[in-house]
Amino acid sequence: MRLDISDYLNHRLDWNLLRTYLVIVQERNMSRAAARLHVTQPAVSQALKRLEETLGRTLIQRRGSQFEPTAAGQEVYRIAGDIYGHIARLETELDDKTDDITGTIRFMSVSRIDSPVYDEFLAEFHRAYPRIDLQIEVMRSSDVISSLLQKTATAGLSLCRNPIEKLERHCFLRQRYAIFCGRHHRLFGRSGLTMDDLLAENFVSFTSDQIGDSLSPLAVFRDQRGFTGRIVASSPSLDEVRRLIFAGFGIGCLPQHIVRDDLAQQRLWRLPPDDGLMDVDIHLLWHRERKMNAADHAFLDSMQRYMQRYSLLERLG
């Protein structure tokens, strides 16, 4: 049965509680939700408590480290996403009434998009459309996809291993991942290493490097090759994973083109296998059914045309 909260929305519910709840579910963690909202963790916990009391439903279940929405919580999340999607589209409706191409592009992206083609596209787009404002928000792949499904953003750059029914998907970058260690690691500078030399080493990983998540092929690789070391450090940020590898916490996987300067400066050391592990694609994504204004169309059309000028290899520089 669907949860009917129309009376609360009309008379009793603070809409800020819904916004907080959206972030709680997306982060699956109170501390991360508080950091993203720029408030304290007790404030986030209190907001969840107030929402649950107002609706008379338990929305989140906690069992040890498990943090999942209940059936009612999933329904509230769906409704809250629809509400904020409509709010975000108010500006789209108003922009369509103007004569000039103006407006604001909301663009979501994973961290560290390292591509000279991307940089030049942004420069060319701004020259062509100086009255269009651009807001870029950096977040995890799962949150990029969630925002696009809620129709709160024009488009995004994200990992997306499998097609999603409502999202248009075009490969923008193909990144080759390889294994590296840092200057402070015992394997740094050693030549003639084999995969067997790595199996017992501890690992630094991405938080999306879990079975079923966007970088799960890296976890599958470790499992299939028989790695026995622990994951001793992790982060959703590529730059922080790179920093932890450099600091010697463990070995880890990074895109080859991102660390070219680190290798030249001997901050990082390349480990077997010599041909790397696998290719991981970053896709340009947008919602097929989201109403687009002139600014949205100009941005997407320009980016796709610019992408067509260059091969995937050229986009990596």
Rank of each mutant, 00 (worst) to 15 (best):
R106K: 14
Y118Q: 10
E120H: 13
I145N: 02
A128F: 01
D143P: 00
R112N: 15
E137V: 03
L134N: 00
G103T: 10
G156S: 05
M108L: 10
V144L: 05
S111D: 15
I105C: 00
D114M: 09
G156Q: 06
D133V: 01
R127M: 10
D133W: 03
Q150P: 02
S158Y: 04
R106I: 11
R127F: 03
V110Q: 04
I136H: 02
H126I: 12
A153K: 09
Q150K: 13
Y129N: 14
D119A: 15
S158G: 10
S115I: 08
H126M: 06
V144T: 05
L122S: 08
E124Q: 15
I113M: 09
L148T: 15
S141H: 03
F107E: 00
S142C: 03
E137D: 12
S146G: 14
I113P: 02
D100Q: 09
T102A: 08
I136C: 07
H126L: 07
R127Y: 06
P116D: 05
D133Y: 06
R106G: 06
S158T: 13
M139W: 01
L134F: 12
L134T: 04
L122F: 15
F121E: 04
P116Y: 00
L148A: 11
D133G: 08
R127I: 09
R112H: 09
S111L: 09
T102M: 05
R112Y: 03
P130M: 05
S146R: 07
H126P: 07
M139Q: 13
H126F: 07
R131C: 02
A155Y: 11
S142T: 10
Q135R: 07
S115E: 10
D119C: 08
R112V: 12
R131Y: 07
S141P: 03
L122Y: 09
E120A: 15
I132W: 08
L157M: 14
S111C: 11
D133Q: 12
Q135H: 06
S158L: 06
S109T: 13
A155E: 00
S115P: 13
P116K: 07
G103S: 08
R131A: 12
Q135L: 14
R140L: 02
M108V: 11
I145L: 15
R127Q: 14
Y118K: 06
S147I: 02
L134V: 14
S115C: 10
D143M: 09
R127P: 03
A128M: 05
T104W: 01
F125R: 11
M108A: 12
V117N: 04
L122Q: 12
A155D: 03
A155H: 10
I113H: 05
L134E: 01
I136E: 06
S158P: 08
M108F: 12
R106T: 14
I145V: 15
F107P: 00
V117P: 03
V117K: 00
D114W: 06
D119T: 12
S147T: 09
A153H: 13
I132P: 04
I113A: 03
M139N: 00
L149F: 03
V144M: 04
V144N: 04
R131P: 00
R112E: 15
